[in-house]
Design a protein around this nucleic acid. Sequence first.
DNA 1: ATAGGGGGTTGGAGCTGCTCTAGGTCAATA
DNA 2: TATTGACCTAGAGCAGCTCCAACCCCCTAT
Lengths: 125, 125
Amino acid sequence: MNIGEAGKKSGLSPDTIRFYEKRGLILSTKRDEKGHRYYAENDVGWLGLLACLRGTGMPLAETETFTHLVHEGEHTVPDRIDLLENHRKRLAQKRAELDAYETHLDEKIAYYNSVLEKQNKEAAQ
Amino acid sequence: MNIGEAGKKSGLSPDTIRFYEKRGLILSTKRDEKGHRYYAENDVGWLGLLACLRGTGMPLAETETFTHLVHEGEHTVPDRIDLLENHRKRLAQKRAELDAYETHLDEKIAYYNSVLEKQNKEAAQ
DNA sequence: ATAGGGGGTTGGAGCTGCTCTAGGTCAATA
DNA sequence: TATTGACCTAGAGCAGCTCCAACCCCCTAT
């Protein structure tokens, strides 16, 4: 499939895929006779993983490290697990922070609604 | 309190606070006789709200809009509610995406652990 | 009294990670 | 045939910080 479809399936924009390719984050980068990139289902899986890692806040440099590990072969599996588990821990922290922010936001909305109610009451008098 | 303490309490770095000030996002920007910024408890509350909005992904431009509404006075309360509720909806979407990514990540880790186990079994033979 | 450390100030450069633009090729469609 | 649309490239632009140099002021220790 072409880069547009691969983008839709994986959740990355074509621009982002090309950018990642330059940075060495793409495992397979084949071209057809027109020079256009094409991807197999498998490749889209990899793109989806990149989307997942980046979308959960893994820095690009670390995503690069992970890609290198994958390139190096099966003996790097323990290192990959390490890297992903560290990332998962960070993600848990980030989620806790997000929860706190969400509560804060809800409280603010509730507060503004109470202000609005008070304003309406006063206007009715 | 000074900018360092205000930063710690609100979750923003002093650099970020100064940057927001340039962008017009800070309600109160008083200085002491040395030219140093100082903040009251109230101001820190506002900084904390900024941290919350930005930390949940509200674009800076929209945060600016919100600040302008606050400056304009109490009659903008309905607009503020609108803005915050739209943001909350976006946040819910973002959270759903994050949940999906987290599942994806966990699956990947589980997969790598199964690979590792298989490798260990083969090595033991 | 002076040297060092720890806080603050400024303007501006640098960084990350996209995202968009200009200028081009090719294939199909009105 | 001309326009539409999807791809290509190199490189500029943008968001949102983050860091740096160069400076000021106050305090403590030598």
